[in-house]
Design a protein around this nucleic acid. Structure first.
Lengths: 258, 258
DNA sequence: AATTAAATTTCGCCT
DNA sequence: AGGCGAAGTTTAATT
């Protein structure tokens, strides 16, 4: 790690870190040029450059959640120090594009190796809600039996698909947030598609924590139903039934995707 | 800036930097808990925490373009050091959510103030392509004369609108990338809308660097046209004609938006 | 404030 | 490799 280094000294850290695929951090005054899917130019200013082990690149300004310039993982790098200017260039193909960062002043540069094997788990995502219904169908309603999930139909993918206690087909559209008009339209399309092929009655159910104001009218008008489904309860259901249990579940129920 | 500090010492830098809205950087071993729109848990590992002047937060692992946890600008922070553990918590409302980062080991912490007034310009955006057509209509075709741009019509806004050398109206849908089915549908809607009101023939032109495979058939079937338009050439056109020139252009041509 | 549309969207899955 | 759908999408523009 170097504080206020000359470009040539910083360059040594940069090259070494890039070579051994470490995490590189450079803070200083730079300009950035991007050419690829679009083109951009960033005039000189003080920013933070991060290059990760996997070759991804981030240029962050002092404000804003998003990087001002970036490259996804898999970039190839080239760097050089000349006339007190440190240039770092990232290139990737498919699509062909490149980002060039030129530092004329460097406050801090550091090469690191972060050991990180910690697991990341995201709960109560929409996919978790799908799974929760599969594991505990009563979350939706008594007697519901899932047949398939993320089933491909004409207009796209329907979330969960099954039959109710009376043998009617049930098409379920799941939303993690308050369901709006768009969700109803989507459900309607799926139901229509299934009705065209099925030989039995088909119900359409919108499952979400809440439904937007006024949308209930639209839903009722299309003879569709709303069922309240709490993401938190879904997450709890998943937590109770561990990943291993889920695996056996899929084997035991032998879901038919005809 | 501190290297391998105790939590209590790091805490001083953190608090001060947060207080004066500087850029905060903490690298170390941490766990992260997020609760809000969804919920997530990140088990201990070595990561980089960035908190910006505007209150945005980023937790970056050693790989991946995207942060593993984050918060948009406008968060309120609370931090404390206890039993050798540094805890930093970001809270925001609307939607209500929070991220808590707990460091049990710190490699590096730094508070900075980045002076950055450099302008960022993204060229060859779709809007740039609109402007380029206005400045040099021959980019589209000989004899084309723009009448208005971003004109409000029933289904939305059409990109550019004008008349050709034979006095026919021309509706142009511009895409910066390969135009797909959606672009054709959009153009068709606009053309239909204009045809309903116009007293002359109306042409529909899709202007893009390329057209998706198979979409040409759809386009032809609707009696619409495709014109190749290179974003790069548009960017060059804009560069030649400076912003000042553009301003006078808008004044001089007195474009009618009836 | 709510809705809609675009993004150098990214990411994942399936064809 | 390309295409489609989802995202804790984010962000900006518009109603």
């Amino acid at each position: 790690m170097l504080v206020n280094p000359e470009a040539e000294d910083a360059s040594r850290i940069v090259e070494e870190t890039l070579f051994q695929h470490g995490l590189l951090l450079v803070v200083g005054r730079c300009s950035v040029r991007y050419i690829g899917r679009a083109e951009s130019k960033l005039e000189p200013g003080e920013r933070m450059l991060i290059i990760k082990e996997d070759g991804s690149l981030l240029v962050h300004r002092s404000t804003g959640y998003e990087p001002v310039n970036w490259q996804p993982p898999g970039c190839v790098y080239h760097s050089q120090a000349r006339n007190g200017v440190l240039e770092i260039q990232a290139v990737r193909h498919r699509p062909s594009e490149s980002v060039k960062v030129s530092f004329d002043r460097i406050f801090l540069t550091s090469g690191m190796n972060l050991a990180d094997s910690g697991e990341f788990s995201l709960h109560a995502s929409e996919e978790d809600m799908h799974k929760a219904i599969l594991i505990r169908p009563t979350l939706l309603e008594e007697g519901f039996k899932p047949i398939s999930y993320e089933k491909k139909v004409d207009p796209g993918f329907l979330d969960v698909y099954g039959q109710d206690s009376q043998g009617r087909l049930v098409v379920i559209e799941v939303k993690r947030k308050t369901a709006g008009k768009q969700a109803v339209i989507q459900l309607a399309k799926y139901v229509e598609s299934i009705r065209g092929k099925a030989d039995r009655q088909v119900r359409g159910v919108l499952a979400a924590p809440d439904i937007a104001k006024g949308v209930q009218t639209l839903l009722s008008g299309l003879s569709l139903e709303f069922k309240r489904l709490d993401p938190k309860k879904c997450a709890e259901t998943l937590q109770q039934s561990k990943a291993t249990k889920l695996a056996t579940f899929f084997k035991e129920t032998e879901m038919d995707d005809r």
